[in-house]
Simulated assay, not measured.
Amino acid sequence: MTDQRGGYGGERRDEIAYVCAEFQGLHAGLEAHSTEGAAPLERLLAALRAGADPTAPLEALHEALLAAGDAAGIHGQTRGLNLIGVGAATPDEWVLLCPTGQCSRHAWPDDPEAPHCRIGDLPLRREPL
């Protein structure tokens, strides 16, 4: 289900944000321990790039991660837990968000160049707090 910006609901966006933020580790883990290699991850990226519903590819990726030995997959990660005084630097009234609105990824603008979205290879968009 998409929201008014063309993105997905909160849980789905969190799952996509997790995949985006942990992409390299997930890719390496699947390549090393999955019978399909990184194919489930690549299918999810293809669906997201095409604007297709990511529900089935996300579930397939979750199952592939579990089969590869990841105890939590993509559904069991702690999200949105930011302890006071721990974590990213305090933003200077800006936050960087997913440029496509498909996930809930965010970053603080502590580097002159914004990180890039793994789905569309676009820099994260800058939004005021």
Rank of each mutant, 00 (worst) to 15 (best):
M1S: 10
M1Y: 07
M1F: 01
Q4S: 13
R5M: 03
E15K: 09
E15W: 10
I16N: 00
I16W: 04
V19N: 00
C20K: 01
L26G: 03
H27Y: 09
L30Y: 05
E31Y: 03
A32D: 14
A32S: 15
T35R: 15
E36A: 15
E36I: 04
E36R: 13
L41T: 00
A46T: 11
A47W: 05
A50F: 02
A52K: 14
D53Q: 03
D53N: 12
T55S: 09
T55K: 07
A56L: 10
P57N: 07
A60S: 09
L65F: 00
L66Y: 00
A67P: 06
A68G: 11
G69R: 03
G73W: 02
G76S: 09
L81I: 08
N82Y: 12
N82L: 13
L83K: 07
G85L: 11
G85W: 13
G87E: 08
G87V: 08
T90P: 10
P91L: 08
P91M: 10
E93V: 09
W94I: 09
G101W: 04
C103A: 02
R105Q: 03
P112H: 08
E113T: 15
H116Q: 12
H116P: 00
R118S: 03
G120Y: 05
L122E: 15
L122W: 12
P123M: 12
P123R: 14
P123I: 15
E127W: 10
